[in-house]
Every structure is written in structure tokens, then in C-alpha cells.
């Protein structure tokens, strides 16, 4: 086909238009939170002593960390939707959550006798934690990769990875309301595994499904 003919055809199709991909992403995040929240409530629920737990810094700190992961992954995924000049992609933003967590570990280690460290890190729910985070995150991951597809990601693998980390952050936030292991040592040992697994799945999905 001649390029001029293509231009004429496309020009005649000007009326068909889509939403801003940023709006699509927001909707995908909202639906993801609803899905992950409902799945949690319909299956394992929140821990019975959540009222008392909310008054402890360790419990609340879990949400500070997971929501930081959510915020940083969201900003990167938003960025990945739009073609832009340059190859700069501030992936280091994803270190915000882990950095906070390291600070939390510092506080924990100062306040806790050395004999308790290993037990706090291993906890009682390790296997459960490793299962629940990917399980809660898999539907959000699908939604977020779909949202990524609606944009024009020039780096689909990286975009998919951010979608996976965001899905993992959302899943971890809800799982944290169920989990009775609150020590930053436990969070740092087990939570990242599930989140990174989702990130890896997201990278593969993005690579193949978010191409355009």
C-alpha cells in the first residue's frame, strides 16, 4: 500500500478515539484493590486481634512499607504508559520500600535481644505468606498488564515488571492485615519473595502481551 493511501485511510478514521491510558490505569488499580480485598475477606479474612494490632508500630509499619512499594511501582507504571524521548527509566524508585524496611530492621535489632532475631525472621507464617501474596496478586497483575497494553509502552518488559511489583504491593498490603508476624525481620525475609515472583511473571507477560 502507498503511504499516501494509508494516510488517507487513517485520516478518515479520526473520529475513533480512546481514553487516556492514565485513567485506564487508575481504574485497573481500583479494581485490583477491590478484587484483592474481596479475595482476602472471602477466604482468610483479617486477623482477629486487628484492633489491638493497629496500636503497635510493627503492624502499622508493614503498611507504610507495602504502600510505599505501591506508590513507587504505580508512578513507574504510569510513566511506562507513555512514549517519551530518552531511555532514562528511574527504576531505583522501587528501592524506596526496601530502604524503609531496612530502617525498620535497624530499629528492631536495637530493641530486640539477639536471641530473638532468628525466631522473629522465621516467624510462624512463612509458607502461608509465600502462597498468599502471589495468589492475591495474580488477578491484579492481569488487570495491570491489560492497562499497560492500553498505553504505548516502549519498554514493555520493564513496564510489565513494574505492573508485577505493583500487583505484589497491593497483594502484600492486604495480606499484611491477616499476617500475625509483624517484625520487620519477617517482612523483609518473606514478603519480597512473593512480590518479586509477581514482578518476574509481569516482566514476561509484559514482554509478550504488552507489545504493540
Amino acid at each position: 500500500m502507498k503511504t499516501d493511501d494509508l494516510i488517507a485511510k487513517l485520516g478518515a478514521d479520526n473520529s475513533r478515539r480512546s481514553w487516556s491510558p492514565a485513567a485506564t490505569l487508575l481504574i485497573a488499580v481500583a479494581v485490583s484493590a477491590i478484587v484483592a480485598g474481596s479475595m482476602l475477606m472471602l477466604t482468610i479474612g483479617v486477623r482477629p486481634d486487628i484492633g489491638a494490632a493497629l496500636t503497635t508500630w510493627r503492624f502499622d509499619f508493614k503498611f507504610v512499607v507495602t504502600l510505599t512499594v505501591v506508590a513507587s511501582a504505580y508512578s513507574l507504571l504510569h510513566r511506562a504508559l507513555f512514549p517519551r524521548s530518552g531511555t532514562h527509566f528511574p527504576l531505583w524508585l522501587l528501592l524506596a520500600g526496601p530502604t524503609l524496611l531496612l530502617a525498620g530492621i535497624g530499629v528492631e535489632l536495637i530493641g530486640m535481644p539477639e536471641a530473638g532475631w532468628a525466631m522473629a525472621a522465621i516467624g510462624k507464617n512463612a509458607v502461608f505468606c509465600l502462597t498468599v501474596i502471589p495468589a492475591l496478586g495474580i488477578v491484579p497483575l492481569g488487570l495491570l498488564v491489560w492497562a499497560l497494553r492500553q498505553g504505548a509502552p516502549t519498554r514493555p518488559t520493564l513496564g510489565g515488571f513494574c505492573a508485577g511489583i505493583l500487583a505484589g504491593g497491593i497483594a502484600a498490603t492486604f495480606y499484611a492485615a491477616n499476617c500475625t508476624d509483624d517484625s520487620p525481620l519477617f517482612v523483609a525475609t518473606w514478603y519480597p519473595i512473593g512480590v518479586v515472583v509477581l514482578g518476574a511473571v509481569g516482566a514476561v507477560l509484559g514482554r509478550y502481551a504488552a507489545r504493540w
Binding site: 494509508l6 494516510i7 487513517l10 481514553w19 491510558p21 507513555f82
Partner: peptide, 26 residues
């Protein structure tokens, strides 16, 4: 051109358009 057509909603009116166009071409 086809990609520009299908993805023109990813250009934001406040942003420069040449870098947008060129990164699609790239």
C-alpha cells in the same frame, strides 16, 4: 503511522510532540 493512529491518545497536549513521535518510530 499506524501505531501513531492507534496510540494517539498517549500524547498529552501539554507535552512536546516530536519526542513522542520519534520514540514511537524508534
Amino acid at each position: 503511522l499506524l501505531a501513531v493512529h492507534l496510540k494517539r491518545h498517549t500524547w498529552r497536549a501539554k507535552e512536546p510532540i516530536l519526542p513522542w513521535l520519534m520514540s514511537i518510530a524508534r
